[in-house]
Nucleic acid binder design. Structure first.
Lengths: 158, 158
DNA sequence: TAAAAACGTTGCGCTAGAACAACGATTTTG
DNA sequence: CAAAATCGTTGTTCTAGCGCAACGTTTTTA
């Protein structure tokens, strides 16, 4: 997978899980004003996909994009669900994926609430050390929900 | 369950699912500044619990509180997991609960992003009609992430 | 490898929403 | 059922972060 390659765009129905062997994915969407909003970064060793679309088989609202040259293991949804429905160990693994995805999403969201922009940056440095140096200023800003200009100014204040 | 009764407080490990037969629950947490942050309202016909704590059996960070006189069906975690692990229909139901919880949380969060306070109020009116009249101004404000004063001003603008 | 596009940083003014405050209305409590 | 606490509303002031802009640097593309 090349840098900038788009694996899934809004409107498409997601039919794959991706396991990142090398590189990085990000899941993001565009809001009503056309601004990018990064939900999640998946680095080597983790899964990434448009989970709502994959689960409900409705058109995705988000993009899945490689942000670095990446090697991915692609898992087909139908195969995956067949395994989940017939083999208990897979059912267990899927349950764990769902549980962890949910818990993680909650932590990120409610961890951010009520924090100033500077505090959000500090939160990310604690919870995702290295993120700010690994991804571009623009992408980190879209994850934090601030403008690139604001993030740039905050970084000088540690 | 009486109005204002607290079913679970931060620090406790959650061991129950609650199904709301009558009344309403809310799940909320306090942020670093001591402000309340409502994550979710569960009205009659839906489930409510501190899912991260229930799943991981770690201390909760949130409160579960009855906001109206309520009748609840209390489901014990151990019983529930035993059912999930032995009876396929329960495994399926639990999977659906997790999937829907995740999708719902995502929609709420990313639906809000980049919206002005007024647009958030309009979003809630579309998606959760009746919420603004059923719960107090203060609680609705804590769900929207604005101050009660701001919400009060917005309501006159429809 | 040169031109074009995108990005990072910094300056400056503006504004949405917060903070603080006051006060009448509603709710809770003893 | 009366006193006390909490809540909703509205006014005023203040500020964090945005919009816009400029410009040098890095990346992309042809």
């Amino acid at each position: 997978m090349r840098r900038r390659e788009v694996l899934l765009a809004p409107g498409q129905i997601c039919s794959h899980y991706y396991f990142v062997e090398r590189g990085a994915l990000r899941i993001f969407n565009l809001n009503a004003k056309g601004e990018e909003n990064t939900r999640y970064f998946a680095f080597a060793g983790s899964f990434g996909t448009a989970l709502p679309s994959l689960i409900e088989q409705v058109p995705a609202t988000e993009y899945v994009e490689a942000i670095e040259e990446s090697d991915l293991l692609v898992i087909d949804r139908n195969d995956f669900y067949r395994l989940v429905e017939t083999l208990p160990p897979f059912a267990f693994i899927y349950r764990r994926i769902l549980e962890l995805s949910f818990v993680q999403a909650q932590e990120r969201i409610y961890g951010f609430q009520g924090l100033s922009a500077l505090e959000k940056v500090q939160w990310v440095q604690r919870r995702l050390p290295g993120l700010l140096t690994r991804v571009s200023n623009k992408l980190a800003a879209s994850y934090l929900g601030v403008t690139p200009a604001t993030l740039s100014r905050l970084k000088v204040r540690l």
